[in-house]
């Protein structure tokens, strides 16, 4: 796998993707919500940059559009909505106490290795670029998943969900030059609606359990029903 033999633009893409992965790690262990939201916004901006570079390399015109869409949605609108919600819920100074963050970070490293292990035999050795980019995207997706499992704060879980989406988008853009436009629009629409609904749920959660700590959601049990 000799990365220096790749065209410069592809090398640039790999560097950008690597920073996206790095930001996933930042998100994973960031205890302050506001900083986590900022890290997420940067991740979105980088994914948009990747899209723009791919558009420039491959002369794929509809990708300029998706780059703008990603920038508007992932780097500006969703972080702004989350920011507003945290202020409204008075969580700006909220810091979460994480249990064994070192262990979770090691877990994330293991996930990266796992992704490479999974992807390497799948794609021919000549396609160095595609191999790397798919492995990185899969790692971003899996770290997002790990974050949703590991963080108990609802806003942090949503950040994990959204960074999973970033990983998916990275895969779609860089490995396949973007999905057909109809699909991309549909996915963007779904993400936006999901974000609005998450906002609604933050308020509902606060009304019902007086906190956004989803660990307190434990009323429903296998044999529950008459225990209330």
């Amino acid at each position: 796998m000799n990365l220096t033999l790749l065209p410069l633009l592809q090398q640039l893409l790999l560097v950008l993707a690597a920073i996206v992965l790095f930001l996933s790690f930042v998100l994973l262990a960031q205890v302050r919500l506001i900083s986590a939201i900022h890290a997420f916004a940067w991740q979105g901006a980088l994914v948009a940059a990747v899209t723009a570079v791919v558009a420039a390399t491959g002369q794929v015109h509809h990708l300029y559009f998706s780059a703008a869409l990603t920038l508007a949605l992932k780097a500006l609108l969703i972080p702004w909505m989350l920011h507003r919600l945290t202020r409204r819920l008075e969580l700006e100074r909220h810091t979460e106490s994480l249990q064994s963050p070192a262990l979770v970070t090691m877990g994330a490293v293991a996930l990266v290795i796992f992704s490479y292990w999974l992807v390497l035999p799948m794609i021919h050795a000549e396609m160095t670029f595609t191999r790397n980019i798919i492995a990185i995207s899969l790692s971003v997706v899996l770290i997002g998943l790990l974050m949703m499992v590991f963080r108990t704060q609802a806003v942090a879980q949503v950040l994990g969900f959204m960074s999973m989406e970033n990983g998916l988008f990275l895969a779609a853009v860089s490995a396949t030059d973007g999905m057909p436009l109809v699909v991309e629009l549909g996915v963007a629409f779904d993400v936006l609606v999901a974000m609005v609904l998450f906002g609604v749920f933050f308020l509902q959660l606060r009304d019902s359990i007086d906190s956004l700590d989803v660990d307190r959601l434990n009323r429903l049990r296998e044999t529950g029903g008459d225990s209330q």
Binding site: M148, A154, F161, A194, L205, V214
Partner: peptide, 18 residues
């Protein structure tokens, strides 16, 4: 809007979303 219903919906949203 009972606590149980909100909990169920959150679980549904997160699990199916993932």
């Amino acid at each position: 809007r009972t606590p149980e219903a909100v909990e169920a919906a959150w679980k549904y949203f997160i699990l199916c979303g993932v």
